[in-house]
């Protein structure tokens, strides 16, 4: 048969009705699942078919969390294909950036809290001059990449309402301007999901989010003030370090070996301290400060060449 003639008519594929796709992302503990449940409930009230898919497991332990919500007259796959999310809602900035390729390049909307949750893995470089391993991408960098972008300091705005925990509801307020559900429905469904004592604040949050988004849409510009700044550059001294050991002064007490955070010291056969791995020494000076006999000293050297091999 003729391989080049595609067996399935591309027009038929293109004409197939597509569900509404909302991808909700964030970090474990932020309430991603709650946000997606609210959406699913709204869709259920309209007798739409719904698929809400998430992967649990490692989520609790500070990892990335995501939930795919798809609704419409007919929904097949449980997950949203890349480039087909009508809306990407990010409760954390870097998580939003991670999932950006999912936003529909023709009509998609990106809604993100500019809140940054820095993982411990962002702070693992022990060397002098090390910078945070967190994306430096700012709001301004993203605006041109997706058809519609809303980035806001939702947590800050929520704090002004008296409860930073309603940040997610604020984002739902922004989302409510993008999807076709009535304002009243959002309020009703939300009231079902939030703790009884917080209904008022949550309703205020949804209003604030809505008003902010409508204002942005009306003016056609996104306020960039809320953009996360690049991590400040670290100054002085960024040069290499060298650990000098005065072997004759060491009495083998083992204090430095026990305290070295990098585990790069040991006592040799003569019970004298030695550096096992010069590259592992970060120059933190703990050994220098703790040695009762001043046998170790960290020196700043101008270039790595001066550091011992």
């Amino acid at each position: 048969m003729n391989e080049a003639a595609h067996a399935i008519d591309p027009a038929a594929v293109a004409a197939a009705p597509r569900p509404t796709n909302v991808l909700v992302v964030g970090v474990g503990g932020q309430g991603v699942i709650m946000v997606s449940k609210v959406l699913a409930r709204l869709a259920q009230r309209h007798d739409l078919e719904i698929k809400q898919s998430e992967v649990h497991g490692m989520a609790k332990r500070g990892g990335s969390v995501f939930s795919h919500v798809r609704f419409g007259p007919q929904v097949w796959a449980p997950t949203i294909p890349v480039g087909e999310a009508d809306v990407l809602v990010a409760l954390e900035w870097a998580e939003g950036l991670r999932w950006l390729p999912y936003v529909d390049p023709e009509r998609g909307t990106f809604i993100a809290d500019t809140k940054r949750i820095v993982p411990p893995f962002g702070c693992t470089d022990r060397r002098r001059g090390a910078t945070l391993a967190y994306p430096g991408t700012a709001v301004a960098d993203v605006v041109g990449l997706v058809p519609h972008a809303y980035a806001l300091d939702a947590e800050g705005m929520a704090s002004e309402l008296g409860n930073p925990r309603v940040a997610n509801t604020l984002l739902l307020g922004v989302l409510s301007t993008v999807l076709d559900f009535g304002v009243g429905e959002w309020r009703e469904v939300l009231a079902e999901f939030v703790p009884a004592g917080t209904v008022e604040t949550n309703l205020a949050a949804i209003e604030t989010g809505r008003a902010w988004a409508l204002d942005v849409a009306a003016r056609g510009v996104l306020p960039l003030a809320a953009a996360p700044a690049r991590a400040p550059a670290v100054d002085v001294p960024t040069g290499a370090v060298r650990l000098d050991i005065e072997a004759a002064w060491c009495k083998g007490c083992d204090i430095c070996v026990k305290f070295c955070p990098e585990l790069c010291l040991r006592l040799n056969a003569e019970r004298v301290v030695e550096l096992t791995d010069p590259a592992a020494c970060t120059g933190c000076r703990i050994c220098e400060w703790l040695c009762p006999d001043l046998a170790l000293a960290v020196r700043n050297v101008a270039s790595p060449a001066e550091a011992p091999a």
Partner: peptide
Amino acid sequence: GFVAAGVLAPRPPAPTFDLEPLVRPPVLC
């Protein structure tokens, strides 16, 4: 798979973004 098999027409490639990825593996609490 169906594109490779000649059943579906290839789609225009999705836009790629040159953004720094963030490593966020699960950690102990």
